[in-house]
């Protein structure tokens, strides 16, 4: 966090704000929950959410759904990375081809991936395979675009040196392109991971029989609202932790 170069007074004020804000939000939440302004049960009290959270983390069922989501995430993200990197390098190493592909990739990248769920369901069914495919589709575009842009920006002098040394295509890839592409690939992976997580969880929410997204929407459908909130908290904590790890890795490669 950008807290360096601050005088001690400013640092104290910032810290106070950062500590007080969550406290104020929790108090506000509790006041709304107890105010009776909303229908009963719509906004449960903090104690009810905490109790539901505890019940969830002590239940083996949660870990089954958690495992399903993690497995889908691992599968989807691995496929997205492999195909995204290969496609990005293939397109980026030919500037004309990349200028042809860029508008298509960019517009597909900004399309909501969840609308492709029916297509992947027709092909893979409603099981985890369709969520893996949707996650792979979501993660593919940021990784491919970042790799393509990185390939286009590889220093021409390096490519010329490779050509002068009569390197084969494979040698060019391994010795020239890949070492220059570590940063863009990792940055693409960080962005792609976020999209993969969202695509998989939304896929589980729409049509599934396992996973954290399925569990959240199941609690919503059966009006177990405190449990739904606790699953959303678990989803957010998981997503933020994964994103923090990926950001850390990305920053390390950026510094290197």
């Amino acid at each position: 966090m950008a807290q360096t170069g601050m005088n001690p007074r400013l640092r104290r004020q910032v810290l106070t704000l950062q500590v007080l804000t969550p406290v104020v939000l929790v108090i506000l939440w509790e006041l709304i929950a107890r105010s009776g302004l909303l229908y009963e049960g719509v906004v449960p009290t903090i104690l009810e959410v905490a109790s539901a959270f505890w019940n969830e983390v002590s239940s083996p069922e949660l870990y089954h759904h958690f495992g399903v989501t993690l497995m889908e995430l691992f599968g989807g993200f691995t496929i997205a990375t492999l195909i995204g990197v290969v496609t990005g390098i293939a397109l980026g190493s030919r500037p004309f081809v990349s200028s042809v592909a860029d508008p298509f990739l960019s517009s597909l990248a900004t399309t909501p991936k969840i609308i492709f769920l029916p297509v992947v369901m027709l092909i893979f069914g409603i099981g985890p395979e369709s969520k893996v495919a949707l996650g792979a589709l979501g993660g593919f575009f940021p990784i491919a675009l970042s790799t393509m842009s990185g390939t286009l920006n590889v220093r021409p002098v390096l490519v010329d040196v490779g050509k002068a040394l009569n390197l084969t295509r494979w040698q060019m890839l391994v010795k020239i392109y890949l070492p220059s592409l570590v940063g863009p690939i990792i940055r693409g992976m960080r962005l792609g991971l976020g999209v993969t997580i969202i695509a998989i969880l939304l896929g589980e929410i729409k049509l599934s029989n396992a996973g954290l997204g399925f569990l959240a929407i199941e609690y919503y459908n059966t009006f177990h609202i405190a449990s739904m909130y606790s699953i959303l908290i678990i989803i957010f904590l998981t997503a933020l932790s994964i994103n923090a790890v990926m950001s850390y890795i990305s920053q390390r490669f950026d510094r290197a």
Partner: peptide, 21 residues
């Protein structure tokens, strides 16, 4: 200084998943 980092973290968070709420 207090909130820009938080906003950046929210930008990266899967906020769309809040829709059931």
């Amino acid at each position: 200084r207090a909130y820009r980092g938080w906003l950046a973290a929210m930008f990266a968070a899967p906020l769309v998943l809040l829709y059931p709420l």
